[in-house]
Amino acid sequence: MDEARLESILSRYEGEPYDLIPILQDIQDNYGFLPKEEVKAVARRINVPITQVYSVATFYKMFSLIPKGKHQLKVCLGTTCHLKGGQRLVDSLSSRLGVEVGYTSKDGQFSLETVGCLGSCAQAPVMMVDDKYHARVTVDKVPKILKQYQT
């Protein structure tokens, strides 16, 4: 475990039990997932039972206990995107990349997720790759978008 790396995150907080979620968010952002040893260290430090840490880490969708891919694909399945074919977009990405929703492609390039709503409903169907929004993504646009990120 890289103690300095973890310490740089923990030092931003007072170390109270209510800091648990923001700390886990920082670890998730920094490491791309929640490594076991780091999570245990957080529990000890802020005096929260490891069972509670585990319940939080598995309840909220943004946390992952396994490493994620280089690029995060988030396909919106909000109501408007659902009506405009969001699920077909998921299917297309899934079959092209050979990856199920919630998992990462074998080459470690892409993790595929669905989200409740990205709030860009006027441009449905919408997907996000990392922090970039892609508007009106019909199935035929998928190859071109993926190409931008494939190395």
Binding site: Y18, D19, L20, I21, L24, V48, S55, Y60, M62
Partner: peptide, 25 residues
């Protein structure tokens, strides 16, 4: 500012409060 972590139910006020306190929503 507190950030959610991807749980729809946290829009419910008592769940939101639980989430700020560091618990599941």
């Amino acid at each position: 500012v507190s950030q959610g972590s991807g749980a729809f139910v946290c829009g419910e006020e008592t769940a939101l409060i639980a989430s700020i306190e560091g618990f599941i929503g």
